[in-house]
Nucleic acid binder design. Sequence first.
DNA 1: CCGTTTGAGGCAAACGATTGTAACAAGAGT
DNA 2: ACTCTTGTTACAATCGTTTGCCTCAAACGG
Lengths: 334, 334
Amino acid sequence: MAGVHPSTVSRVLRGKENIPIPEVTRQRIKKAAKDLKYLPDERARALRLGKSHTIGLVVPDISNVFFAEIAKSIEIESYKAGYTLVVCDTNEEQEKEVHFVNNLISRGVDGLIIAPVQDSDGHILDLKEKNYPFVLIDRCFEDMEANAIISDNEDAAFKAVAHLAGLGHKRVGFLSGRQNIYTIKKRLAGYRKAVKEYNLERNEALICGNGFTFESGYEATLEILLLPNPSTALLISGNIITLGAIKAILEKGLNIPDDISMIGFTDNIVSPYLVCPLTTISHPLREMGKKAFDLLIKHVESKDNLPFTEEIIKTQFHVRRSTDRVLSQVEAAW
Amino acid sequence: MAGVHPSTVSRVLRGKENIPIPEVTRQRIKKAAKDLKYLPDERARALRLGKSHTIGLVVPDISNVFFAEIAKSIEIESYKAGYTLVVCDTNEEQEKEVHFVNNLISRGVDGLIIAPVQDSDGHILDLKEKNYPFVLIDRCFEDMEANAIISDNEDAAFKAVAHLAGLGHKRVGFLSGRQNIYTIKKRLAGYRKAVKEYNLERNEALICGNGFTFESGYEATLEILLLPNPSTALLISGNIITLGAIKAILEKGLNIPDDISMIGFTDNIVSPYLVCPLTTISHPLREMGKKAFDLLIKHVESKDNLPFTEEIIKTQFHVRRSTDRVLSQVEAAW
DNA sequence: CCGTTTGAGGCAAACGATTGTAACAAGAGT
DNA sequence: ACTCTTGTTACAATCGTTTGCCTCAAACGG
């Protein structure tokens, strides 16, 4: 429409000022582009340039606020940095994760941020082998060196149990998420360490559950409540699980915190407004997202091979009403 | 590596059985592909084929469960149908929405699902003009014909207010989200209709708020509570706003539902477990997502221009404890 | 008046995959 | 012995951009 060669259009629209093209032609091209509502084909550009200015984010459940918050902050950072973010939800299914990672690479994303399902790690090792830039977030692999932004799960769990011990609890239950996941392993380690240190009841039956769903939280809680000696407190590894636990507790006619204390692993905007305002461990999710993005971009935009960085982010502990002194049967009788 | 021409590789890997290629060669190529961990370049394929098997989803806030649920169901449907979903979060900013829509088109997505910010509609009209397949979800434009999957906001709001009227409430507040949005306009219309029909107090001061944030919910609620005659019930247009409202109510030392009833517009998994189990209007979000996806794919895969479809989905009403009979001052004195 | 610089912008190759057509060889048919 | 299949695989063009290089004309210097 402007009567010039595509290459000239490209030079004008990409703003190559050093190539001499008279202002009249520039204007003619720009006007034509506007009139035609011309949008460059990013596929073709990416193909030619070998760079897509796109990054991929792979999370296990986008409908969980935990990952939604992370996604949101990475999205905001990407936008600011001129990158487009592609979000994929694996639904905690390994097969989908492999599919998405390959798919994203096929579409030429410049890098990946992954919160892995962790049923296997072959595809992650492939990434390392290909020297593909990626950052693990929230979950990493113990025996693998990689970029990772994680939180201090072990320490947080330890402190949470310590808090309960300080309130006189002797039997603390641990509602687990999927047990083969890094975060859960670490939290469990912290739990065990505190149980030992504060001399609480050691009983494998108090460690219950294997999943991040409402139902798995509900059922695991029932199992613990139906023990001959149910726990007087619960440490709960996930915010959807927490709701299942509340359901079970209410159904049994129990009161929080009088009959049972609870601590939620993962604070969110509703924690203070639940049936009983929930004591939680809170993760600075926005900060984690930003750090993961910055780290990824550093690797993407660097020519040489940077060494891997693993950063552990401190969590915070919010005491609300769901944790209180244990009422022993004797005290209760009073 | 297999010593053959790329075209032969393509034919083998795409499984063109009608082109005669001897089994030995096929195996040689497949083995090489596996050994090299070959992944086809989807950009190049999309460029050549004019089809990317990708669709774009543009939502105003992915960290809001409402849209996260929609995103999740669309993601699941896309995966099943062999499409990749690209999710973009506009943060309720018009400028970002325009950017994302253009960006997605540039990358050659086959179609778009949009929950628009609705500060303007020029970019949507462009889509129509270009005959680009798209489906609006949750929010549509009153004066524009387009594919849309929406819910019966007006009716739902009407019924909610009717429910409150039935409980004896005469002054019902309406906590609004961003007021220029289709859904809010409709809800407000339903509210006004019920106010008229049940002869409730008509007072513009009872319509309050303009945003979907926690803070805007908090402040709008305070405004209503500080009126000389505060409302005895609230209809609340959004789940984050609801939390802000609860904060304001608790801060004022009021009790739900004794001092004030509330109905939340948008049920979610926590609604039953809030300080006071919340009476809500629930949207079948997964179903809406699936319908939007199916509709989009129908348009994407059809050669001819299908007529636009607008489907209105029925909401459900969940009565929980947050709505109760109004306690008049006289009754309360008893 | 001729050679050289400079301005303006076209040409062509490349990115990687796809596909209609062509090419070449071996074998079949006459 | 020659043509005609048929089987096997290569060639070339294409998708839309980008970029190094080249061309052509006008202007300039001597």
